[in-house]
């Protein structure tokens, strides 16, 4: 019930379409989502081959509960259009659009996907979308992009391209991303879609990585893209609620249950009214705790 309503996207791990080894082992690291990449990690000569690799992998490998996302090439290129033709038919959960600058980019992709869906007899809207905002126009248009399509489940910030277009580079504290992250988050929250943070590319800097994960969690992101399996566990740990948070959430649900049993219209905990945002927060805490394996399963509406 509660658990089914909230999909966790704490970690979205990049898996390059040019690495069958990484694809074969992708599920064993426990990422919430796997993002199969046809874009930047695949060289121009290998686009055709990578497309076949991901197409057949999606059709053959059982990824279980793990969400499957495919990052295609920009749809205003022939490569991107061919990616769509192949990938929609292989039916991943989500297609991620790179370098999204405005709502029209999403509409264009949506029209192409809808046409393919009709051709192959998929219910319209089967394939969800995700948009990566990687330049100033994308960030400034975050609000219209967030509202552009029912298929859109979330937006991600792509920082490497963004900082370059801002004539700067990435730094440990991430001041250069402060405004962009804030705008993207607000746009996501306004319409209730997921907000995902960018990758941290220095895989050997564990300390810096952890700092950044704590920062983006505090900002309100739902999760972060990862480029290496070793980044998954630390993110999940940071996103695991504290005992105090879990305890509060459990008591919130206890109070709701009690009010239902007593047919009482008023739900209160510790003398304070329980309102909708509190219930939302409690659900999220329980879901995160469940995913971290620290709930004794089953109870509390999970």
């Amino acid at each position: 019930m509660v658990a089914e309503k909230i999909k966790l996207r704490r970690t979205m791990m990049y898996v390059s379409g040019s690495s069958p080894a990484n694809i074969a082992q992708a599920t064993i690291y426990g990422a919430d989502s796997l993002m199969f990449d046809l874009e930047d990690s695949v060289s121009v000569n290998e686009k055709d081959a990578a497309r076949f690799v991901i197409y057949h992998a999606l059709k053959t490998i059982d990824f279980g509960d793990t969400e499957t996302v495919v990052r295609i090439n920009a749809i205003n290129t022939e490569t991107g259009r061919q990616d769509l033709e192949a990938i929609v038919r292989a039916k991943p959960d989500v297609i991620r659009l790179p370098k999204t600058s405005c709502a029209q980019d999403v509409w264009d992709a949506e029209a192409m996907i809808a046409k393919i869906e009709r051709n192959i007899g998929f219910e319209e809207g089967t394939i969800k979308l995700m948009a990566a905002l990687e330049d100033p126009s994308g960030i400034l248009n975050a609000r219209e992009i967030a509202k552009s399509s029912k298929r859109l489940i979330g937006m991600a910030i792509g920082a490497e391209d963004f900082v370059t277009s801002m004539k700067t580079t990435r730094s440990p504290l991430g001041v250069e991303l402060a405004t962009a992250r804030g705008l993207l988050l607000m746009a996501c929250r306004e319409v209730g879609i997921y907000a995902l943070d960018t990758v941290y590319s220095d895989i050997n800097n564990d300390e810096g990585f952890l700092e950044e994960v704590k920062l983006i969690k505090q900002l309100g992101f739902d999760g972060k893209s990862c480029i290496h399996p070793r980044q998954i566990k630390p993110i999940h740990q940071v996103f695991t609620p504290t005992i105090k948070e879990i305890d509060y959430a459990i008591r919130t649900f206890g109070a709701i249950q009690e009010a239902e049993e007593k047919h009482s219209g008023v739900i209160a905990l510790n003398g304070k009214m329980i309102d909708l945002p509190m219930v939302e927060r409690a659900r999220r805490v329980i879901r995160l705790a469940d995913a971290a394996g620290i709930l004794d399963g089953g109870a509390y509406g999970c």
Partner: peptide, 26 residues
């Protein structure tokens, strides 16, 4: 993996036969 072999042989055939419009299937 079997799906990788399938993908690689398909890609090699398309390149060797200069095929550009592969018929993707559901």
């Amino acid at each position: 993996l079997d799906c990788t072999i399938r993908a690689r042989v398909s890609a090699a055939v398309c390149r060797a036969a200069a095929l550009t419009d592969y018929h993707w299937k559901v």
